[in-house]
């Protein structure tokens, strides 16, 4: 007869067996299953060697402590991606890097900073990413992210070599005035990884899982992009969440890094077509500023709304455009993003 009260061997063995059995059922077996039944999406770019090195920097610096990489299948997470995350999304990134370290725990458990699943789409500008790492408060006044100065070097302007990435840091923000800030290889790797973070499209004919729950007040911009909602889009909100990072909330930009929209000649042109083209296709025409990535991931309505917002705020005054114009231009400038 089993007597746990007097038989220490039985007690310990039963506790051990019970725990091993339960653990196998709830952790080990499902883990094997999830690991083995997984593959990349057909349109998913393979991770480059540089992006992989960038992922190493991401793990080493503990970015995981504050940033998640998972779009949950609930309404509120629509801000972070166009569809809920699926296991295939992590096919390349969640692999054991070497014998010493485990698979990166990328999903995370705290969102002290924004989710980064789709950050390459939202913040695709290398210049912005570099400045933001060097000192987040240069581009986002209220950010509480640490500065990563050790990923950059200050050198004499004569020492800048071909291929160096220089940062447009104004003199008062330098610890040694007159020097130039350049990115180390580690910074370049990390930024390459960050910009590579984009949700891959699902194979044709496969509908994404629905987001659970509903909000009565309309929803995030991505929501209307996904469902083609016709509800009036708030251009100011689009500006705050997409454009303000570089062009700044007051529309004045950052000298040397991002051009001002307030009073800009291009913004105030009577014909909005050039502005529509830039938002859809990106722009690299001003040598003193970093290139602007394409924003074609926004819907026609959102692009029209934000252009109208910019053209009628910050002291600007120019006639509005409409979603139809954006739609026409999209077919020319960014045909691959035309809704199927």
């Amino acid at each position: 007869m089993i007597n746990f009260h007097k038989d220490h061997a039985t007690l310990v063995n039963v506790a051990l067996m019970g725990f091993v059995l339960l653990s196998t059922g709830v952790a080990v077996a499902p883990s094997f299953n999830m690991q083995d039944n997984n593959g990349p999406l057909p349109d998913m770019p393979v991770m480059t060697a540089q992006e992989r090195r960038g992922l190493d920097v991401y793990v080493a610096e503990g970015c995981i402590a504050c940033h998640t990489q998972q779009v949950r299948n609930i309404e509120m997470d629509k801000t972070w991606g166009t569809r809920p995350s699926i296991p295939s999304d992590y096919y390349y990134s969640k692999q054991r890097p070497d014998i010493w370290r485990n698979t990166p725990s990328l999903l995370g458990s705290e969102r002290t900073g924004p989710d980064l699943t789709n950050v390459g789409v939202r913040k695709g500008s290398e210049a912005w990413q570099m400045l933001h790492l060097y000192n987040p408060r240069l581009v986002e006044k209220y950010s509480i992210m640490p500065r990563y100065g050790w990923l950059f070097r200050e050198v004499d302007s004569t020492a800048v070599k071909e291929g160096d990435v220089t940062l447009a840091v104004s003199a008062e923000n330098l610890s040694h005035p007159g020097k130039v800030v350049i990115a180390t290889e580690r910074a370049k790797d990390l930024v390459a990884y960050m910009i590579s973070l984009k949700q891959a499209p699902l194979p044709e004919g496969l509908a994404p899982e629905d987001f659970i729950g509903s909000r009565s007040d309309g929803g995030a911009m991505a929501a209307s992009a996904a469902s083609g909602a016709t509800a009036a889009v708030d251009g100011g909100r689009v500006f705050t969440s997409v454009c303000a990072a570089c062009h700044q909330p007051d529309g004045k930009g950052l000298p040397g890094a991002f051009p001002a929209l307030a009073g800009a000649e291009l913004v105030n042109e009577k014909d909005p077509l050039k502005m529509v083209d830039i938002v859809l296709g990106g722009y690299d025409g001003l040598p003193q500023y970093g290139p602007m990535p394409s924003q074609a991931h926004l819907s026609d309505e959102e692009i029209a709304a934000v252009i109208n917002y910019v053209r009628s705020n910050f002291g600007n005054d120019a006639p509005p455009t409409d979603a139809e114009t954006v739609k026409t231009q999209r077919a020319v400038i960014a045909p691959e993003t035309v809704q199927r």
Partner: peptide, 18 residues
Amino acid sequence: IIGYLPFYQGGMGETIVQ
């Protein structure tokens, strides 16, 4: 031991174990 053995921790396997 389960937390550190590598054999089932690729992809989402790591997340379950986590």
